[in-house]
């Protein structure tokens, strides 16, 4: 089988800070990382590669510096990498992004499984995966934690409210992954990083994948950002000092006052 993995470079949102005076983001020194959900999805794909000898191609869309996440994926074991990069993509919302990604996948050729993280931590929309599946006209299984392949059967364990489902699909299918419990991302060794430089890597423009300008960027995006602003400030709490015993007694008093304890 041929597997594609959709990956995205995101700023490490745990490091993003707000300037309290201006309410704007402080970006200086915030590292860019591979979206953790995509990282998990990539590792799921690489597990299948190891077991079944599948070919794994990663596809990303972003500015030239997003090459870093493609290189990371190659170092972790992917066979081929593609970056869609073009000013024409700037300002794309999830619809226009998935249009471009779907075009990229079509250019890659026949894919049996397309993996993606359930969402990216900078946008948290969880829309791109399903929208790509729709653009490609293939079924989707979202929010999976584990995937196995048995011949032509693709078995996915999906998280649902209060439990899980085991789903069966046939290729081609798009699967979005949540993160496994207690999972920590793998990182490549020095020689693996070095070896990745020799793997095929391509940068494709909008024209390369046959994406039409009217469906890209702001023009192609149904949603638009009207305003960005700092989260509203609220009235400050009634403050008390207290460590150890003193603090414990204060909390007890408050819990009583609010009738949480007798």
């Amino acid at each position: 089988m041929n597997i594609a993995v959709l990956i995205k470079q995101v700023p490490d949102s745990t490091e993003v800070k707000i300037n309290p005076e201006t309410g704007t983001l402080i970006r200086a020194g915030v590292p860019s990382i591979l979206n953790p959900y995509d990282h998990y999805a990539l590792e799921a794909a690489l597990e299948l590669k190891k077991k079944h000898n599948f070919k794994v191609t990663v596809l990303s869309m972003g500015p030239p510096q997003a090459k870093a996440v493609v290189q990371l994926a190659l170092a972790l074991g992917a066979d081929e990498g593609v970056l869609l990069s073009d000013m024409a993509f700037a300002g794309s919302d999830t619809w226009a992004t998935s249009y471009a990604l779907a075009k990229g996948i079509k250019k890659l050729g026949k894919m049996d499984i397309i993996f993606a993280g359930m969402q990216a931590i900078d946008g948290d929309t969880a829309q791109t995966g399903p929208a790509v599946a729709q653009q490609l006209g293939i079924p989707q299984v979202t929010f999976c934690e584990h995937v196995e392949v048995d011949g032509r059967r693709i078995l996915a364990r999906k998280q649902i409210d209060g439990g899980h489902e085991l789903l069966e699909a046939r290729p081609p299918v798009l699967i979005t992954m949540i993160m496994g419990k207690d999972w920590t991302p793998k990182h490549p060794s020095f020689p693996a990083v070095h070896a990745a430089l020799k793997k095929p890597f391509h940068v494709w423009s909008a024209a390369d994948v046959g994406a039409e300008a009217q469906y890209l960027g702001l023009k192609g995006s149904p949603t638009q950002v009207n305003k960005i602003y700092p989260p509203p400030q609220r009235e400050k709490a009634a403050m008390f000092n207290g460590s150890g015993q003193q603090g414990a007694e204060k909390i007890l008093e408050l819990l009583r006052a609010e009738h949480f304890i007798g």
Partner: peptide, 12 residues
């Protein structure tokens, strides 16, 4: 948006 660091108003 941005891991909740900032708010955005969206229109379609």
């Amino acid at each position: 948006a941005f891991g909740g660091n900032i708010m955005a108003d969206i229109l379609a």
